[in-house]
Amino acid sequence: MELSINPILLVASLMVASTPILLAAIGEMVVEKAGVLNLGVEGMMIVGAICGFAIAVETGSPAVGFVAAALGGAILSMLFGFLTQYLLSNQVATGLALTLFGLGLSSLMGQGYVGIKPPSTPKLDIPILGDIPVLGPMIFSHDLMVYISLAIVAGVWAFLKYTRGGLILRAVGESHDAAHALGYNVILVRLAAIGFGGACAGLGGAYLSLVRVPQWTEGMTAGAGWIALAIVVFASWRAGRVLLGAYLFGGITVLQLNLQAAGVAIPVELLSMSPYLITILVLVIISSDRNRAALNAPASLGRSFHASS
């Protein structure tokens, strides 16, 4: 059988497939840039998924649903924020507990929403751009959230690179004691970052339940939050690379299914593990350049901060 994979459609679907991971990963990157490691991404995603789904169904408006998802994710993240920032609990364990709690909470919230079809999120019909051959169907034929996710990535990049706020955030992540000595409110900055991360994870979850699947089922994120965490590390805490990582991972996932659909004779087991293997391989190649890599991890990542210490 000849290879019949259409690259235009492939790119188009990988953009959609990658969006939930991209949203969650860019949020988590900001959190980690502030020196906080929140392993609760999966929990925040799934709570966002049900909040967005339930509100969209009740109001009939996906847009309101997405707002609710962001809020839901952010509220849940504040639980993590309170515990880790004020009560100085261990971040790794608290994050994992957040995932456990979020999975349980979302199932409880979602009990009345199984087997319902959500209101559909319209695709944008962008005039002119959408009519460009090749590029039109490939890049300019999606729903608004795809572009919002890209805008968030660009916004985060610009914020970290060019603004004073970005500088403060990075300072807090690199050395909270120094940032504190300079008069910045470390805890407040970190809480803001955690809240942003929660909101992004919530949006990513809602993108799954409202656009990409779309339906509500318990545990439907099926590990996407963990992949988002891996993508942040893969990106060595850089916004552009988060985009690259998410699209690479999503792209290979879509590609391997396309290869199967096209009947290419590669063992299925190998194809199904390929997204993970290739991500590792690419990271090895990137990070073996010893001059640059590893210097990017925020120095205070995962450490608790207490002002009088």
Binding site: N6, S13, A17, T217, A224, T253, L257, N258, Q260, A261
Partner: peptide, 13 residues
């Protein structure tokens, strides 16, 4: 569910 969506799309494409 997300993977099922991708698989369906791949087949349709």
């Amino acid at each position: 569910p997300a993977k099922e969506a991708d698989a369906a799309k791949a087949l349709i494409e």
